[in-house]
Amino acid sequence: MNAFKDAGHLFRLAGVFLAGILLFLVIREFLVPKSFGEYGHYRGAALAEIAARPLHYAGHDTCETCHADVLEKKKDGKHAHVNCETCHGALANHADDPASVTPQKLDTAVLCVRCHEANAAKPRGFPQVVSADHSNGLACDTCHQPHSPAITAGGAK
């Protein structure tokens, strides 16, 4: 009995710790979203929220419904598998309303080097140039046709 009395302060301390843990559990109940852990270590409801966000990309299938001529140019070239919006940017607005939303003309001197500027980290077989030496600031589409970039004997296709 005396031992319990003399250890009273330890029970008080244990009470403080317990109160702290309980307070934490209550806070946790309010702060952790209900759908957390539904599918993994994230908020399950986030999937539906992300799915409900407006689309920015139309997708190449949509582009090809109107721009069959470009598809024809692309199909045998090195860029056959590069989707339209990779270079032209997100154009869902244009697909929805082609008349009033028109894509901007691209500056190939800036755009092409994003992929084709020489860098030792790129695979050897990937076409790459030191743009300053290669074209001296000249726009790439002066010689290359971006939809099918290889230069043939007859000039740019």
Binding site: N2, A3, K5, D6, G8, H9, R12, L13, V16
Partner: peptide, 9 residues
Amino acid sequence: LGSSNISEH
């Protein structure tokens, strides 16, 4: 913590 027990024990 409200306890002033500093007995030897």
